[in-house]
Amino acid sequence: MLQYVIRRLVYGMITLLALSIITFTLLQNTGGDPLDRLKSNPRITQQAIQEMAEFYGLDQPGTKQYLTWVGNFVQVWNYPTAWGRSFQGPQQVQELVLNRLGGTARLMFTALGLAVMIGIPLGIYQAIKQYSFFDQATTTFSFVTFSTPIFVLGIGLQIILALKLEQWTGVKFFYTSGMNSTSYSDLSFGARIGDTLQHLVLPATSIALISIAGYSRYQRASMLEVMHSDYLRTAKAKGLSRRSVIVKHALRNALIPIITLVSLDVAGVLGGAVITESIFAWPGMGRLYIQAIFLNDWPIVMAVVMLIGFMVVVMNLLADLAYGWLDPRVRYD
């Protein structure tokens, strides 16, 4: 088992190295220059732009820029200078990225938690009650939410639950933007919880609704497949109770496929939710990432891509290990 884990980790490192080379090459060849925006200002001279290029090391050949970057990037302990400076200003990338992790984790784990806790039981229940009114109704709801663009969903929730609800009731239930109120640090513990929820509910719900739809459909299909298997029919024939059949025999096996899905989603958590974070002005990685892409700020793009890549490698490994725990037939040689 240990040998297997070590081998997977070595493969993972090779994958990350390849990922960094491919991403860097693509970013270097997108045709943009991080300092392009300066050119539209006639008061900034070519000399000033040249000095700026030297400051950021952009005057160096691409290969040297990559080797310098990768050499520094792996020295994560040299906080906050290890990952270089953002091209948007003199800020250190490591500081910028790590500062956004908290916001992203709060939003994404809440949304993911809601999706797992609602979506999976929902899928199981749909399978148990196959073709019932509940199954039909929730299936329709899943299709509607799954096919609604998150931008529409987010803005719609803002308008209905933040703007209109306040107009109708005169009470502010939810905020349209931000992670906390500006007076958060002055609030009592109870008020902080309330304030956090008032900001968190809409963005988390936007993401969760779509994920719930996906998870429930996936879980329903997986559960139905297991429920129609021979060994379950045997279990029923042996006279086991319906609950025992479902919980002890069907559920455990039906959960195996969804582990892959959840583990990949957990890996993607670090990337944040680009659209949702922008709509709700949520200070997360997704917003940082998309802004960096638009501004050719490749040190930030590289850092986020590498973090996501790292999480994908780790979560895939954990998922494979979990298969072994759930399915005794799986062995690691």
Binding site: G102, T110, I118, T196, P283
Partner: peptide, 28 residues
Amino acid sequence: WQRRSLTWLGLLLAFVLVVAACGDDDTA
């Protein structure tokens, strides 16, 4: 069983939201 499930689901939901709310304000 259904009632218990719903109760547990509700408690879990509440727990997630409270944990999220009580987390340190960890942006810079």
